[in-house]
Amino acid sequence: MTLAADWLNVITIIGAGCVTLLARASFIVLPSDTPVPGWLNRALKFVGAAVLPALILPDVMFRELAAGESVNVYRIIAALIAAGVAWRTRNIFATIGAGMAVLWLLKLWGPI
Protein backbone atom coordinates (compact mmCIF):
# COMPACT_ATOMS: atom_id res chain seq x y z
CA MET A 1 0.00 0.00 0.00
CA THR A 2 2.40 2.67 -1.18
CA LEU A 3 1.25 6.23 -1.60
CA ALA A 4 2.35 7.06 -5.13
CA ALA A 5 3.48 10.38 -6.54
CA ASP A 6 0.35 10.87 -8.66
CA TRP A 7 -1.03 14.30 -9.50
CA LEU A 8 -3.64 14.30 -6.71
CA ASN A 9 -0.99 13.70 -4.04
CA VAL A 10 1.30 16.30 -5.58
CA ILE A 11 -1.50 18.88 -5.47
CA THR A 12 -2.28 17.91 -1.86
CA ILE A 13 1.34 18.52 -0.90
CA ILE A 14 1.46 21.88 -2.65
CA GLY A 15 -1.81 22.80 -0.91
CA ALA A 16 -0.33 21.74 2.44
CA GLY A 17 2.66 24.00 1.73
CA CYS A 18 0.33 26.91 0.93
CA VAL A 19 -1.76 26.65 4.13
CA THR A 20 1.41 26.27 6.21
CA LEU A 21 2.93 29.36 4.60
CA LEU A 22 -0.31 31.30 5.18
CA ALA A 23 -0.25 30.40 8.89
CA ARG A 24 3.40 31.45 9.18
CA ALA A 25 3.02 34.64 7.16
CA SER A 26 -0.36 35.76 8.58
CA PHE A 27 0.49 38.67 10.87
CA ILE A 28 3.99 39.18 9.41
CA VAL A 29 2.57 40.18 6.01
CA LEU A 30 -0.61 41.89 7.24
CA PRO A 31 -0.44 45.70 7.40
CA SER A 32 1.45 46.68 10.54
CA ASP A 33 -0.52 47.20 13.74
CA THR A 34 -3.27 44.72 12.76
CA PRO A 35 -4.51 43.72 16.22
CA VAL A 36 -4.88 40.04 17.17
CA PRO A 37 -8.60 39.51 17.95
CA GLY A 38 -9.21 38.47 21.57
CA TRP A 39 -11.17 35.31 20.72
CA LEU A 40 -8.42 34.15 18.33
CA ASN A 41 -5.75 34.68 20.95
CA ARG A 42 -7.78 32.68 23.46
CA ALA A 43 -8.56 29.82 21.07
CA LEU A 44 -4.94 29.54 19.85
CA LYS A 45 -3.78 28.82 23.40
CA PHE A 46 -5.70 25.52 23.32
CA VAL A 47 -4.85 24.28 19.83
CA GLY A 48 -1.90 22.11 20.92
CA ALA A 49 -3.76 20.57 23.86
CA ALA A 50 -6.70 19.62 21.60
CA VAL A 51 -5.01 18.58 18.34
CA LEU A 52 -2.28 16.33 19.73
CA PRO A 53 -4.57 13.93 21.67
CA ALA A 54 -6.93 13.86 18.66
CA LEU A 55 -3.96 12.83 16.47
CA ILE A 56 -2.59 10.28 18.93
CA LEU A 57 -5.74 8.34 19.84
CA PRO A 58 -6.77 6.79 16.49
CA ASP A 59 -3.15 5.99 15.55
CA VAL A 60 -2.69 4.09 18.81
CA MET A 61 -6.05 2.35 19.11
CA PHE A 62 -7.23 1.53 15.61
CA ARG A 63 -4.13 0.76 13.51
CA GLU A 64 -2.77 -2.67 12.52
CA LEU A 65 -5.80 -4.46 13.99
CA ALA A 66 -5.63 -8.25 13.98
CA ALA A 67 -8.71 -10.16 12.81
CA GLY A 68 -11.45 -9.91 15.44
CA GLU A 69 -9.65 -7.17 17.39
CA SER A 70 -11.63 -3.97 18.03
CA VAL A 71 -8.68 -2.03 19.52
CA ASN A 72 -4.92 -2.63 19.27
CA VAL A 73 -4.06 -3.72 22.81
CA TYR A 74 -0.28 -3.88 22.24
CA ARG A 75 -0.15 -0.33 20.90
CA ILE A 76 -2.30 0.94 23.79
CA ILE A 77 0.04 -0.65 26.39
CA ALA A 78 3.12 0.67 24.58
CA ALA A 79 1.60 4.17 24.34
CA LEU A 80 0.67 4.24 28.04
CA ILE A 81 4.23 3.36 29.04
CA ALA A 82 5.61 5.89 26.55
CA ALA A 83 3.24 8.51 28.01
CA GLY A 84 4.73 7.84 31.44
CA VAL A 85 8.23 8.30 30.02
CA ALA A 86 7.17 11.49 28.20
CA TRP A 87 5.63 12.84 31.39
CA ARG A 88 8.75 12.08 33.48
CA THR A 89 11.52 12.98 31.04
CA ARG A 90 9.93 15.46 28.60
CA ASN A 91 12.33 13.87 26.11
CA ILE A 92 11.13 13.04 22.62
CA PHE A 93 13.76 10.35 21.96
CA ALA A 94 13.30 8.58 25.29
CA THR A 95 9.56 8.54 24.56
CA ILE A 96 9.99 7.03 21.09
CA GLY A 97 12.58 4.54 22.38
CA ALA A 98 10.35 3.34 25.22
CA GLY A 99 7.21 3.07 23.07
CA MET A 100 8.91 1.19 20.22
CA ALA A 101 10.76 -1.15 22.61
CA VAL A 102 7.56 -2.12 24.45
CA LEU A 103 5.69 -2.65 21.17
CA TRP A 104 8.45 -4.86 19.76
CA LEU A 105 8.65 -6.92 22.96
CA LEU A 106 4.89 -7.45 22.98
CA LYS A 107 4.85 -8.39 19.29
CA LEU A 108 7.67 -10.88 19.82
CA TRP A 109 6.51 -12.53 23.04
CA GLY A 110 2.99 -11.28 23.72
CA PRO A 111 0.06 -13.70 24.09
CA ILE A 112 -2.01 -12.35 21.19
Partner: peptide
Protein backbone atom coordinates in the same frame (compact mmCIF):
# COMPACT_ATOMS: atom_id res chain seq x y z
CA UNK B 1 5.78 -0.98 12.81
CA UNK B 2 7.98 2.11 12.60
CA UNK B 3 4.87 4.15 11.74
CA UNK B 4 4.12 3.87 15.48
CA UNK B 5 6.83 6.52 15.93
CA UNK B 6 4.31 9.07 14.61
CA UNK B 7 1.89 8.98 17.58
CA UNK B 8 4.91 8.66 19.91
CA UNK B 9 6.28 11.97 18.58
CA UNK B 10 2.91 13.61 19.30
CA UNK B 11 2.84 11.99 22.75
CA UNK B 12 6.18 13.62 23.61
CA UNK B 13 4.88 16.99 22.40
CA UNK B 14 1.58 16.93 24.28
CA UNK B 15 2.75 17.20 27.90
CA UNK B 16 4.59 20.53 27.53
CA UNK B 17 1.32 21.89 26.03
CA UNK B 18 -0.68 20.97 29.16
CA UNK B 19 0.14 23.96 31.35
CA UNK B 20 -3.14 24.58 33.23
CA UNK B 21 -6.17 22.63 34.41
CA UNK B 22 -8.15 23.99 31.44
CA UNK B 23 -5.51 22.54 29.10
CA UNK B 24 -5.80 19.11 30.73
CA UNK B 25 -9.58 19.20 30.40
CA UNK B 26 -9.19 20.27 26.76
CA UNK B 27 -6.91 17.30 26.09
CA UNK B 28 -9.25 14.86 27.84
CA UNK B 29 -12.29 16.12 25.95
CA UNK B 30 -10.45 16.03 22.60
Amino acid sequence: SLDFAIPLVFLALVFPALTTRSHWVTAGVA
